[in-house]
């Protein structure tokens, strides 16, 4: 795949993941406001999330969108800071993607698994 095609696809991936993230953030904020307004405790919140796979699916999508969006941006920043797009930017972005996926999905599993 040519370098410019890769970059155009990465830009598209970042743009699409931004659209997903904007909806996820709004839903996430609404959830927080709802939970806090009613004075729910952590135990009560976990009581509602445990076994709620729809809740888990929503946050899994959130995590995947983050794992796509942030590393592409970080790769761009590294490429600009070092003056070239190469193995460093790819390595740092890949590590960040893996870290976001691993930590994010683990957290989702922790609040959803019964």
């Amino acid at each position: 795949m040519s370098a410019i095609r890769t970059q155009a696809l990465l830009w598209y991936g970042q743009r699409l993941s931004a659209m997903v993230l904007s909806l996820c953030v709004l839903a996430h904020l609404a959830g927080i406001i709802y939970a806090v307004r009613g004075g729910l405790t952590a135990a009560e919140i976990l009581g509602r999330t445990k076994g709620n796979w729809a809740f888990g699916a929503f946050y899994a999508v959130f995590v995947v969108a983050c794992a796509i969006h942030a590393p592409i941006g970080v790769a761009n920043i590294v490429a600009e800071a070092t003056g070239e797009r190469g193995s460093w930017s790819v390595a740092i972005a890949s590590l960040l993607a893996l870290a976001i996926l691993a930590m994010g999905l683990r957290a989702v599993y922790a609040v959803v698994a019964p």
Binding site: I4, R5, A8, L9, W11, Y12
Partner: peptide, 8 residues
Amino acid sequence: AARAAVRG
């Protein structure tokens, strides 16, 4: 460019 990249 994104559309063209998706189409190859």
